[in-house]
Design a protein around this nucleic acid. Structure first.
Length: 415
DNA sequence: TCTGGGGTCCTAGGACCC
DNA sequence: TCTGGGGTCCTAGGACCC
C-alpha cells in the first residue's frame, strides 16, 4: 500500500509558523518578481483567487478583503521541507520525495493504516507546525485522488475497494487525473471520456496507441494495478537555473554577469549532490507579453571536453554560448542555464588525456571555495564574472525574514 | 506598470551500422 | 544503381508534474 503525504497550502503554512497574525485571513505567496500567485490560504481560495494567476489581476479584490500578499521566501520553504521530510523518513519506509511539499511512502502490510497516518499527522503538526493531508491507496495515481479528497474532508482518506474507487472517479473530471494534462483532456473528451471512471473503463491498448505508454499506465493504476513503483532517490539528471528579470536588459556584459550567477548557483547544487556535468545550455528570451519590441528566443548548447563541476569551466562555456546567441538591440527579459549529461563524481570514466593530478587539484579548489562560503557566509568569495554591482534584478518586495537560515532573521518572542 | 521556476519521461526522426 | 530488413544511438521537442 502507498500513502501520499501532502502539505496543506505549503508556502502559506510556512509563513504562518512565524507570523501567527497571518492566521484566519486571506494570504497568498507570489512567484519571483511578485508575478503570479503560487500558494493560497483557504481564505484566499474562498475568494476565488486561482492558482498561478497574475497577481495584478486580483490585487484589488484581494486587498479589499484584507488579504496579505508575500514574496516567495525559498530559503524558508526549503528548510521547513527538509524538516518535514526528515520526520517522514524516521517514521516510514521507502520515502520518495516527490516535490517540495509532498512525498510518497510505502506502508507495511496488515496494519491499521488510518490510525498510523493520523497519529503521524498530529506529530508533524506538533513538532513542525505543518498540517498535511494523507491519501492511502494501492497505487500512486489513486493516492493522488485519495489525497485530494482528504484535503476537502477529514485529512486522511483510505481508498481501496473497487466500488468505492468507481464512485469517487465518477465525480472527477478527466483533467484532474494525475497524468492527464491540458493537451490530452480535450482529446479524451472528444472520444467521449469525461470522468475518471470513463477513463478507468476505457480500452487501455487503444488509448496507448493514441497517447503513449503513460496513458496505459494511468488506466492500469486507476484499476488498482501498480505500474509506478517507488523510485529511489537518484541524483538529478539535469540542473536548471533561470530567472525572469524585473527590468529588460540590453547590455551584453550586464546579461553575462547575471547569467554567471545562474552558473554559480547550478554548479553549487551539482557539487552538493556529488556529480559532474559535461554540457551546458544557455538560453535567452524577450518578454513574451510585450509586443512593442521584437520577440526573440534562442539557446546554445556547449559540450565540454570532459565532465566537471568546476564553476570556472562552465563560466567559460557559458560566455561562448552567450556570444553565439546574443543579438544587439534586443530587450532581454529572461535568461537561464541548464547543466546536463550529469554523472556521478565517484564512478566517472576518467579521460585518458586528463591528468589525474589536475582533476584532484580542481576538486580541492572547488571544495575550498564551497567551504569558505559555508563558513563565512554566502558570496564571501565569488568569480570575477559574477555580478559584483548587479544584485537587484528580481523584485521581492514583500519577502519575510529567513527565520530558520539566518541569524538576523531569527524570530523574537516577547514575554 | 505588473504574467514563475525546476524538473522527468516519452517519442519521432535523423545518422549510422550490417 | 537500386532494393529490403534489422538494429543502435543521439537529439529535439512535446507533454506532464509541482
Amino acid at each position: 500500500m502507498f500513502a501520499l503525504i501532502d502539505c496543506d497550502n505549503f508556502f502559506v503554512s510556512c509563513e504562518r509558523i512565524f507570523q501567527p497574525a497571518l492566521k484566519n485571513r486571506p494570504v497568498v505567496v507570489l512567484s519571483n518578481n511578485d508575478g503570479c500567485v503560487v500558494a493560497r490560504s483557504y481564505e484566499a481560495k474562498a475568494l476565488g483567487i486561482g492558482m498561478a494567476v497574475p497577481f495584478f489581476k486580483v490585487e484589488r479584490l484581494f486587498s479589499a478583503n484584507n488579504g496579505i500578499a508575500l514574496s516567495s521566501n525559498y530559503e524558508l520553504y526549503a528548510d521547513i521541507s527538509k524538516r518535514v521530510m526528515q520526520l517522514i523518513r524516521e517514521e516510514f519506509q521507502n520515502l520518495e520525495i516527490y516535490s517540495i511539499d509532498e512525498a510518497f511512502v510505502r506502508l507495511p502490510d496488515n496494519i491499521d493504516y488510518e490510525t498510523l497516518c493520523r497519529s503521524f499527522r498530529n506529530k508533524l503538526l506538533q513538532y513542525i507546525g505543518i498540517s498535511v493531508s494523507i491519501g492511502i491507496a494501492p497505487t500512486k495515481t489513486l493516492c493522488k485522488i485519495a489525497g485530494e479528497y482528504a484535503k476537502k474532508h477529514d485529512k486522511i482518506y483510505f481508498l481501496n475497494q473497487m466500488p468505492q474507487i468507481s464512485e469517487l472517479l465518477k465525480k472527477i473530471e478527466v483533467i484532474d487525473i494525475w497524468g492527464v494534462g491540458r493537451h490530452t483532456a480535450p482529446k479524451l473528451k472528444f472520444m467521449g471520456i469525461f470522468t475518471g471512471e470513463d477513463l478507468r473503463t476505457a480500452p487501455p491498448k487503444m488509448l496507448r496507441k493514441a497517447f503513449g505508454i503513460g496513458m496505459e499506465k494511468t488506466i492500469m493504476e486507476l484499476n488498482g494495478l501498480p505500474c509506478l513503483e517507488a523510485e529511489s532517490e537518484e541524483p538529478q539528471q539535469s540542473i536548471i537555473s533561470s530567472r525572469t528579470f524585473e527590468y529588460e536588459i540590453k547590455d551584453y556584459n550586464v546579461l553575462k554577469q547575471i547569467i554567471a550567477e545562474f552558473v554559480d548557483s547550478a554548479c553549487q547544487r551539482l557539487r552538493k549532490q556529488e556529480s559532474l556535468a559535461q554540457s551546458i545550455i544557455v538560453s535567452v528570451s524577450t518578454n513574451r507579453f510585450n509586443h512593442t519590441h521584437e520577440q526573440y528566443y534562442n539557446s546554445a548548447l556547449i559540450n565540454l571536453e570532459s565532465p566537471t563541476n568546476n564553476t570556472a569551466k562552465f563560466l567559460q562555456a557559458m560566455d561562448k554560448g552567450l556570444k553565439q546567441i546574443f543579438r544587439n538591440g534586443i530587450f532581454y527579459k529572461r535568461a537561464g542555464i541548464t547543466l546536463l549529461h550529469v554523472s556521478n563524481l565517484h564512478t566517472i570514466q576518467p579521460d585518458l588525456l586528463d591528468k589525474e593530478e589536475n582533476r584532484g587539484k580542481e576538486q580541492n579548489l572547488m571544495k575550498a571555495f564551497d567551504a569558505i562560503n559555508r563558513k563565512m557566509g554566502r558570496k564571501s568569495i565569488y568569480f570575477g564574472a559574477q555580478a559584483g554591482g548587479i544584485k537587484h534584478y528580481i523584485r521581492r518586495e514583500f519577502k519575510s525574514a529567513s527565520y530558520t537560515t539566518s541569524w538576523s532573521g531569527l524570530a523574537i518572542a516577547h514575554a
